[in-house]
Structures are given as structure tokens and as C-alpha cells.
Simulated assay, not measured.
Amino acid sequence: MYRSITAVLHTGHGDIHLDLRPEEAPYTADNFVGLATGSRPWTDPLTGAAGTGGFYDGTVFHRRVPGFAIQGGDRLGTGHGSAGYRIPDEVLPDRGFEHPFQLAMANLGRDSTGSQFFITLAPAPHLNGHYTIFGEVADAPSRSVVGDIASSRTAVRLDRVTISAD
């Protein structure tokens, strides 16, 4: 298990620094790291073939809702793609969306998380109990980038993800 994990989402609007919480959501954090680094096997939703490299490289933030959230992690860019598998939820009853800039996995219902993730821009307690929170945006400049992405009229590219873990 990791003691600490940081990630940097390198985007067309700047970098987003994230602090992941492997102690609260170990399987989810490990899944994100594996997809970001290419160390976890995944299936390309476009071709059905085994994927190579970082899953998130070259994807876009396909959902952008100013004042609410941005969402990415879909190689199709539509919100309907995945890495070809699902993982179980790690929802903690005392961890919620009372604060903005929470990093969580998107899902289609219970235990259907895969590759898509979102970052909130405002408190969203109506999401409590439904999504695995596994990190948060680390600093003010990164929060500004998240806001810029949410306000973008077009999809914003996620060029690559850099992971630092110990």
C-alpha cells in the first residue's frame, strides 16, 4: 500500500496538482495510479484491443459544468467509455462533498467505477454516499485551472498524468 500519492494532471489550461488518499480508498487510488502510468491492463474502448501506455494520456474533460464539476477519464470523450472493467466502491460514511475540489470516481451505480473521475468546484453534499472520494486538488493555482476548464466552451485535453508515490 502507498503511504502517499500525488498526481499532476497536465492539461491544455495548465497543471492540476492532486493529493490522493490511499489510506481512505486504497483500491481506487491504486487503480488511478495504474491507469495513469500504464501499469494496469486496460482495454481501448475504440478498438477493443489491449491498451498500451497511460490510459488518460490524450483524453479530454468531456463534462464541464461551471460552479459544479469537471469530468474526464473516458477515451471515447463522450462519458460512455471505460477501461474495460469495473471496481468496487470505497465510499466512507464520514467522507463527503461538503468542501469543493474533491477528486472522486464517476460511476453508473453501485460498484461500477472504472476509469472516469471528476473534480467538484463547490460543496455538493447531495453526492454523499454515492461516489468514492480518493483525493483533492492540492493548491490555489490548480483550483484556478479547474475553474478555467469548467468554463471552457470546448473539451480540454488531458495530455498526461504524472504520479509520485511512496
Rank of each mutant, 00 (worst) to 15 (best):
Thr11Ser: 07
Ile163Asp: 08
Gly51Thr: 01
Ile133Lys: 02
Gln71Gly: 06
Thr132Cys: 09
Ile133Asn: 00
Phe68Tyr: 11
Gly48Phe: 03
His13Thr: 13
Gly67Ile: 01
Ala140Met: 11
Pro93Trp: 00
Glu24Tyr: 10
Pro66Tyr: 00
Phe32Trp: 02
Asp30Thr: 12
Ile163Asn: 11
Ser142Gln: 04
Asn31Ile: 06
Gly84Asn: 00
Ser144Trp: 02
Asp89Phe: 04
Arg157Cys: 04
Ala25Cys: 13
Val65Ala: 03
Asn107Lys: 02
Ala49Arg: 13
Ser152Glu: 02
Asp148Arg: 14
Gly73Asn: 05
Leu76Cys: 08
Gly79Met: 06
Pro26Leu: 11
Ala36Glu: 01
Tyr2Gln: 08
Pro66His: 02
His99Lys: 15
Gly84Cys: 01
Ala49His: 12
Thr78His: 06
Gly51Gln: 07
Thr52Leu: 04
Leu18Tyr: 11
Val156Ala: 02
Ala7Gly: 12
Thr28Tyr: 00
Gly135Asn: 07
Asp166Val: 12
Ile16Gln: 04
Tyr85Pro: 00
Ser151Leu: 07
Ala7Val: 09
Ser164Thr: 12
Thr6Ile: 06
Gly84Trp: 00
Ser39Trp: 00
Val156Arg: 03
Gly73Gln: 03
Gly72Met: 05
Gln116Asn: 02
Phe101Pro: 02
Gly53Met: 10
Gly67Leu: 11
Tyr2Cys: 09
Thr120Gln: 13
Phe134Ala: 06
Glu98Lys: 07
Gly135Lys: 07
Gly34Asn: 01
Pro66Trp: 05
Thr11His: 03
Phe55Tyr: 15
Leu103Phe: 01
Val65Trp: 02
Gly129Ile: 03
Gly38Cys: 05
Leu46Gln: 14
Glu23His: 15
Thr154Asn: 10
Gly67Tyr: 03
Val137His: 10
Gly77Cys: 10
Arg157Asp: 06
Thr52Glu: 14
Thr37Lys: 01
Val156Met: 05
Ala7Phe: 05
Ile119Phe: 07
Arg21Ala: 10
Ser151Val: 03
Asp30Leu: 09
Ile16Glu: 08
Pro125Lys: 00
Phe134Val: 08
Asp166Gln: 15
Pro88Met: 07
Glu24Ser: 13
Thr132Tyr: 01
Phe118Tyr: 11
Ser152Arg: 08
Tyr85Ile: 00
Val145Gln: 06
Val33Thr: 14
Ala150Asn: 13
Gly67His: 02
Thr113Phe: 04
Ile70Leu: 07
Pro123Gln: 10
Ser142Val: 09
Pro100Tyr: 08
His10Phe: 08
Ala29Tyr: 00
Ile149Ser: 14
Ala140Arg: 14
His99Gly: 09
Glu136Ala: 10
Pro141Cys: 13
Ile16Trp: 10
Met105Lys: 01
Arg110Cys: 15
Phe68Leu: 14
Glu24Arg: 12
His99Cys: 05
Ala122Arg: 12
Gln116Leu: 00
Pro22Gln: 13
His10Met: 06
Tyr2Lys: 13
Leu46Tyr: 09
Val146Leu: 07
Ile163Gly: 11
Val65Arg: 06
Pro41Gly: 01
Arg157Val: 10
Met105Asn: 11
Ile149Pro: 04
Val137Gln: 14
Phe117Asn: 03
Gly135Asp: 04
Ala50Val: 12
